[in-house]
Amino acid sequence: MKIAFTSKGNSWSSEMDPRFGRAEYIFVYDEESKKIEVVENEGISQVEHGAGPRTAKLVFDINPDIIITGNGPGGNALRVLEKADIKMFTGASEMSLEEAYKKYQNNELTIFE
């Protein structure tokens, strides 16, 4: 499984970014190859309109199987994510990526439907 996290930093100890559209980084972990890729959501703080679709497009191109985030996406981002058939888990805020991953493995996150 290729898993993406909305993150405030670029390591496992970084804090989760609870926001989807305005997430600072997308941290990607491939469970099979154990490889980590960190994609900066470049310039997102300067974006006034359409942060949701823009970040969703970034995630669409990364093409993970799963995305783990805090609050969940808005309606526009969701339109994109539905196209990509990416499973989303929410409720991972105020914790590190490492903790969020553990919670995911223990089925403690909410699946977004």
Binding site: P53, K57, V80
Partner: peptide, 13 residues
């Protein structure tokens, strides 16, 4: 950010 190209589709917001 009104237009996003998603694979072979262009989506408009």
């Amino acid at each position: 950010n009104c237009i996003q190209v998603l694979g072979d589709e262009v989506m408009i917001f």
